[in-house]
């Protein structure tokens, strides 16, 4: 049997922090979601990533009865998402990777939604006879969303990741949906722009609560694909993907900030 890579994935870019681990020899007590040797821990307290993430990494290895030496790589959700959240996950991943001497797989966060353990067509209210398009939307403030469009199980975007004005995104999405597809909205953008999305006239459903936000098991599945393609880096070169400049950089580029002597 070919060796299935053992990867530990870290997710802190959204409201919930989670970790996932592949290559786990089941069954593990108290873990119902153990499928294909994948174990996941989700912290249900919103935005307590800094406090919880390092202990969670230790806990998942302990729960699985595995040692750091068994890991092939550390995967980390690289963004977009909360800037602070992205950095907590990235700094944590870099430190574990550096100390344990493991490569890092940087997982594009929006694409990870195409790998969630959920059947879109089974979501209540999904329009019959259509194919699902995965539409992760993160509230980027300033009336924008970080968003893309994906097909289930496929990491190549149908609509490239970007910071979109909501109407612009919906217009592009409408053209992609046509008569054959329906949108499944994920992410905290669902809450921030719920009314706009509901009134868009596009065939859609909202993701159910338990898979609405970023989750490490989805990052892990995508990381396994990326790892097999050799797309790993190291703690020095792993880069976050903010999809937006810092406000001050943006102003400086726009010439709105007076240059200092």
């Amino acid at each position: 049997m070919p060796h299935r890579p053992v990867i530990l994935a870290i997710e802190t870019t959204g409201p919930l922090a989670s970790v996932a681990l592949s290559g786990v020899q089941g069954p593990v007590e108290g873990q119902e979601r153990l499928e294909e040797g994948v174990l996941e821990l989700v912290n249900q307290t919103h935005y307590s990533h800094l406090e919880e993430i390092a202990p969670m990494v230790k806990e998942i290895l302990q729960t699985a009865g595995m040692q750091p030496e068994e890991l092939d790589a550390i995967a980390v959700s690289r963004g977009p998402g909360s800037f602070t959240g992205i950095r907590i996950g990235m700094a944590t991943a870099k430190a574990f990777a550096q100390v344990w001497n493991k490569p890092i797989v940087c997982v594009p966060t929006l694409a990870s939604f195409a790998f969630l353990d959920a059947d879109p067509q089974a979501i209540e209210g999904f329009p019959a006879g259509r194919d699902p398009l995965i539409c992760p939307l993160f509230d980027a403030r300033r009336s924008q969303v970080y968003a893309g469009v994906y097909r289930p199980g496929c990491k190549d975007a149908v609509l490239a990741d970007g910071a979109y004005d909501v109407p612009d995104y919906l217009e592009k999405l409408g053209a992609l949906l046509g008569d054959a597809n329906a949108a499944v909205f994920f992410g905290d953008g669902c809450d921030a722009y719920r009314e706009t999305l509901e009134n868009s006239g596009l065939p859609h459903v909202f993701a159910p609560q338990h898979v609405k936000f970023q989750l490490a098991h989805a990052d892990l599945k995508l990381a396994l694909e990326l790892y097999k393609e050799g797309k790993q880096t190291d703690c020095y070169n792993a880069q976050p993907e903010y999809l937006r400049l810092a406000e001050a950089e943006r102003k400086l580029k726009a010439g709105a900030l007076r240059k200092m002597p």
């Binding site: 800094l50 993430i53 390092a54 202990p55 990494v57 230790k58 750091p68 950095r87 907590i88 700094a91 944590t92 991943a93 870099k94 430190a95 574990f96 550096q98 100390v99 344990w100």
Partner: peptide
Amino acid sequence: TAFAKAVCAA
């Protein structure tokens, strides 16, 4: 702090 904690955990 995130880095230090992960180093200590690792």
